[in-house]
């Protein structure tokens, strides 16, 4: 009994240490965004600021054109990409789950092979820039690489095949329903768990994507929030120049709380996901574990 309690105490202590290790940088980032900028310059980022300040957020709010536009682009891209991606995925996964469907195996191989081999960055880049002229368009943030992938298709197909009884589809036929009707009115409503999981993965993927923006977008007005953050991370001057361009005058720029503002921008980049996390956590964990089994 004594050793048992010691063991409980030990594992909780170790897990607590690891959890703190995971959470600590987030707390530091959040505190830094709330610290008076002069204090940061003087003594660095602190876990508990001596001089608490909302200055960074106030500046951001007052100079919010860039941030708002980027936020808008991220939301637009995330919503469009997730909706279109899920529609495409479900529409190919469902026929693949039907045993009597012609060319079923060929289709499965066609989808699966995309997971094994790829042409790499150079041909993809040339395709989308030279042949499709996607450079500096919103499509570049939605289409290349993200819209559909073999893994999600196979995840959904497996769910449809395992959880939609054949009899349900047949009874739909007997009632005279067409394929399309059966898909929308019977199959999809029965598949909410997998739709939630895949939808969540799409949302996180689009919200977090910065790679497409990095290679296909050079003009500021098409930056997603991640790309804006990326530019500011690699180049603090970018934040300064931009604020200057907005015509606020040099003396204001000199007082700009650059360090805390940079951290505050990162905070608003993660807040939506973190705030929604408790609500989607169930599906998130489920999706991760299904992913492991189906590889």
């Amino acid at each position: 009994m004594q050793t048992n309690r010691l063991y409980q105490f030990g594992i909780i202590f170790i897990m607590l240490a690891f959890t703190l290790f995971c959470v600590f940088p987030f707390v530091l980032l959040f505190s830094a965004s709330l610290t008076n900028d002069l204090e940061i310059v003087r003594s660095g980022y602190k876990l508990i600021p001596n001089e608490f300040s909302l200055e960074a957020y106030r500046y951001m709010w007052n100079n919010s054109t860039d941030i708002m536009r980027s936020y808008g682009i991220t939301i637009l891209v995330t919503v469009t990409g997730t909706a279109a991606g899920m529609a495409i995925t479900a529409m190919v996964a469902y026929p693949m789950s039907r045993k009597e469907m012609p060319f079923r195996n060929a289709l499965a191989f066609y989808v699966f092979f995309t997971m094994l081999f790829n042409g790499g960055l150079v041909p993809t880049y040339l395709l989308y820039t030279n042949y499709f002229d996607f450079k500096n368009t919103l499509l570049a943030l939605i289409l290349p690489g993200l819209l559909a992938n073999g893994f999600y298709v196979i995840l959904m197909r497996t769910f449809f095949a395992a959880s939609i009884p054949k009899e349900v589809i047949e009874s739909g036929y007997i009632d005279g329903a067409k394929e399309w009707k059966i898909f929308c009115a019977i199959v999809l409503p029965l598949s909410l768990p997998v739709l939630a999981t895949v939808g969540l993965f799409y949302t996180i993927m689009y919200w977090n994507d910065w790679f497409n923006g990095l290679i296909y977008v050079t003009e500021k007005q098409y930056f997603s929030i991640q790309n804006l953050l990326n530019r500011i991370l690699l180049d603090l001057q970018f934040l300064q120049n931009n604020t200057q361009q907005m015509g606020k005058g040099a003396e204001l720029v000199a007082k700009l709380p650059l360090d805390s503002m940079r951290m505050a921008m990162a905070v608003i980049g993660i807040v939506p996901l973190i705030a929604a996390y408790p609500f989607f956590q169930k599906y998130f964990v489920k999706g991760l574990t299904i992913g492991a089994v189906k590889g």
Partner: peptide
Amino acid sequence: YRTLLLMTLPA
């Protein structure tokens, strides 16, 4: 099954 086949076209 032409409807099913058509559904796979976008992907």
